[in-house]
Simulated scan of single mutants.
Amino acid sequence: MRPNTLAEAVHRMEAGLPRDVVLAEFIDTFDLGPTDAARLEMVEQEPLLSADEKLNALVGAIAEYLAKQRRLGRVPAWVSDPSRRLAEPWFTTAFPSPAMREYLTFASPAEFASRNIFTEERPLRRARGPRPETENR
């Protein structure tokens, strides 16, 4: 069963489920939310802080990114907590070359870069993500 909230996703990761699988399942659930209000509820509850500082920062970035990208009206207040930021840069690719580091520094969305997380331009894209409004099918 997919996590219905970001807080639930963090709980599952803390229980030992693979981060990439749980986050993908949460994003799928989020994208299938029936309304903006329902999607906002999915990120509204603050996930418990973990011993994993990267996870703490990552979920803050995810919640802020989703709220802004999907225009949910507001960003949950908990994402601004200093514990949701990293002291040292984290490049999310394995063994990034200097060129890849430069690219990720440039391409990372502000919600991630402001937390010292450097990742690809569209970090949460999924095959079943929301369709652009200009697309007619």
Rank of each mutant, 00 (worst) to 15 (best):
Y103S: 09
R70G: 09
F118T: 10
L58C: 05
N56Y: 08
R101N: 08
A113H: 05
P89R: 11
P89A: 08
T93V: 13
P76T: 09
K68M: 07
A99L: 12
I117E: 00
F91P: 04
L58G: 01
W90K: 02
F118S: 04
G73L: 15
Y65D: 12
E64C: 08
Y65F: 12
F112A: 05
P109E: 07
T105C: 09
A63W: 12
S114R: 12
E120A: 09
N56A: 04
E121L: 11
L66R: 02
R71Q: 13
L66M: 06
P89F: 12
G73M: 15
N116C: 02
V75I: 15
T92L: 05
P96G: 02
L55M: 13
S80Q: 10
E121R: 14
G60K: 00
F112Y: 15
R70K: 13
L86H: 01
F118Q: 11
E64W: 06
A77D: 15
A110F: 08
V59K: 01
R125S: 14
N116V: 01
L104V: 06
F95L: 11
P109C: 14
R126A: 09
A107C: 07
Y103W: 13
I62T: 08
T93D: 09
K68W: 06
P98E: 12
N116H: 05
F95P: 02
Q69S: 13
R115L: 04
E120Q: 11
E120G: 14
R101L: 07
A94K: 04
P89I: 13
D81E: 14
R122S: 07
W90I: 04
D81V: 06
T92F: 00
F118L: 09
E64D: 10
T119S: 06
R84H: 08
R122A: 06
R122P: 02
R122W: 07
A107L: 05
I117M: 02
R71T: 07
T92M: 07
R74A: 15
A94V: 06
Q69F: 05
L72G: 12
L72R: 13
P98F: 11
